[in-house]
Design a binder for these strands. Structure first.
Lengths: 244, 244
DNA sequence: AAGTGGTCTAGACCACTTC
DNA sequence: AAGTGGTCTAGACCACTTA
C-alpha cells in the first residue's frame, strides 16, 4: 500500500516532493515491505497513485539509486538492490555516513567555541594569523555507542554562528550555502592515547583509525579541516578504486 | 563559442543528446575554454543556443557533476570545479603505488603456490568448491625496509603460470590480458599479531592498517583478493571524496 | 529587480524486456 | 504486443544570489 497522504506527511512543507517520496520508498524498503530483489511498482503506477508527475518519481528513484537502495533495469523494472557495502568515497558528514550504514549518529559535545586559529590551521586554510575559527570537538556515537572522537575546524568567515550546528555540521554548512563538494582524506592506523581511550571506551593502546579530512567548496575554498580517531574494532573505511 | 553543430557531431546517432552535450562541455573545460572557478552560461542560455530543452541541459550537467567536473550554486550559477589531484583512489598494485610515492618496491617471498581455495575464497570469487587458486604471500618492502605483509589470491583460471609473477602481480596480469580495472578496498585498524610483528620488524601490539582489496576486470569478473597488513607508522592511505 | 538554479507538470516517442 | 525504463519537450512557479 502507498498513499498520497503518507507522502504529504513525510516532511516539512518546504521539503521537495521527490525527497519526500524517496524517504517514503526508503522506509518501505527498510521495513521489508519491498524485499531485496523485488520489483517496485512501475514509475507510471507510482506517479498515478501518488498524484505526481513521472519526472518527480524518477527524481526520487534517482536519489535512492545513488544511495544504493534501488537499481533499474531498462525494459524490466526497478528493483530493491542487494545490500552491498557502500563505498564511502563519497563526501558525507558523519551523520550521513552513518545513515548510509543503517546507524543513527549522535554527539556528546566536548567543545564548541570560537578560537584563534593554530599555526597549522592558518597554513591549511590560508588564513591571516589573527583569524578566528569555529572549533567543534565531540564524541560521535553510533546507536548511542561511542565510535569516534572528532575535532572539526571551520573558518569563522565561512560559518559565523556556531549555534546553527546542533548535530550535523554539513547540514549547517549547507543551509548557509557553504557546502563542501570535494575532499581529501588521509587514513592512518595508530594506538589510542590515554585521553582517547577514556572517551571511546576502549583500552589504552587499542587500535584506532585516524582520519584527517580537508573539504573544499566549489570555488576551491577550503571549508573544513577535521581530525578524527575512530575505534578500530567498530569502523572501516571502504573506497572504490579505478584504473587510470 | 558553442554551436548546435558541434553537439550533433559529438557522438553516434543513437547517443542521447544529453550525453553528447556533456561530452562537449567536458571537452571545453579540459581545453581551458572554461577555466576553473569560471561560471558556465546559464542553463537557459545553453538550452536556447543548442536548441534543446532545459531538462536536457540539466541532465548533461548532472552527469558532469557526478564526474566532479562541474558544481552548481543555487541562485548563482554553474562553475568549473577545482581539479583535485587523483591520489591513491586509483587502482594500482603495490609496485606502482610505491613508485608514485617515490619509493622502490621489493619483495621477500614467503609462499608462491597453487592451492585449493578456502571456503571464503570460493564465496568471494564465485568458484567451484574444488577450484584452485594461485597464492602469493610475501613481505613487501619500501627502499629495502619492511612495509607490509601481503597475501594475494588469484583464481588459477585467470593466472595459470605463477612463474610469471616475479615482482609485480599486476604486471603479470596485464601481460595475459587479465588486468583489473576497478576495485573495492576496505581499510581497518588493528594490532599486529606476534607473527606479523616479526615479519614487519615492529613490536607485537603495534598499530597496523589492514587493507582488503577486491579487484575486477572490465566484464565484472573478480580477479584478485588481497589482504595486507601495513605498518601504521610508515603508511597512510589517501583518497579523494566527492559530493553526490 | 533581474538572473540563476531547483522543482514540477503533462504530455510524447524510443529502446528494451517479457510474454 | 504490452509493459517497462530512457529520453525529450515546452512550459511554469519557487528559492536563492547578486547587484
Amino acid at each position: 500500500m502507498m498513499l498520497r497522504q503518507e507522502l504529504l506527511a513525510a516532511g516539512g512543507e518546504t521539503t521537495p516532493i521527490y525527497v519526500r517520496l524517496a524517504a517514503l520508498l526508503r522506509e518501505k524498503v527498510q521495513q521489508g515491505e519491498f524485499a531485496v530483489g523485488d520489483a517496485l511498482p512501475s514509475e507510471r503506477d507510482i506517479a498515478e497513485r501518488m498524484a505526481v508527475s513521472r519526472v518527480t518519481v524518477r527524481n526520487a528513484i534517482d536519489l535512492l539509486m545513488r544511495e544504493g537502495v534501488l537499481s533499474r533495469r531498462h525494459g524490466s523494472g526497478t528493483y530493491v538492490a542487494p545490500r552491498i557495502e557502500q563505498p564511502s568515497s563519497i563526501l558525507a558528514g558523519f551523520t550521513e555516513d552513518l545513515r548510509r550504514r543503517g546507524l543513527v549518529a549522535g554527539s556528546v559535545w566536548l567543545e564548541k567555541t570560537i578560537d584563534t586559529a593554530t599555526p597549522d590551521e592558518v597554513i591549511a586554510f590560508g588564513l591571516a594569523v589573527t583569524a578566528r575559527v569555529q572549533r567543534f570537538r565531540r564524541i560521535r556515537t553510533a546507536n548511542g555507542e561511542p565510535l569516534a572522537l572528532e575535532h572539526a575546524v571551520v573558518p569563522e568567515t565561512l560559518l559565523p554562528e556556531h549555534d546553527s550546528v546542533t548535530d550535523s555540521l554539513y547540514a549547517a554548512l549547507d543551509r548557509i550555502g557553504n557546502k563542501p563538494v570535494t575532499g581529501l582524506q588521509r587514513v592512518t592506523a595508530s594506538l589510542a592515547t590515554e585521553a582517547e581511550s577514556g572517551h571511546l571506551g576502549v583500552d589504552e593502546g587499542a587500535a584506532v583509525l585516524r582520519i584527517e579530512r580537508r573539504a573544499y567548496m566549489a570555488d576551491g575554498t577550503m571549508v573544513e579541516l577535521t581530525r578524527s580517531a575512530y575505534r578500530g574494532d567498530r569502523y572501516d573505511f571502504i573506497s572504490e578504486l579505478r584504473a587510470l
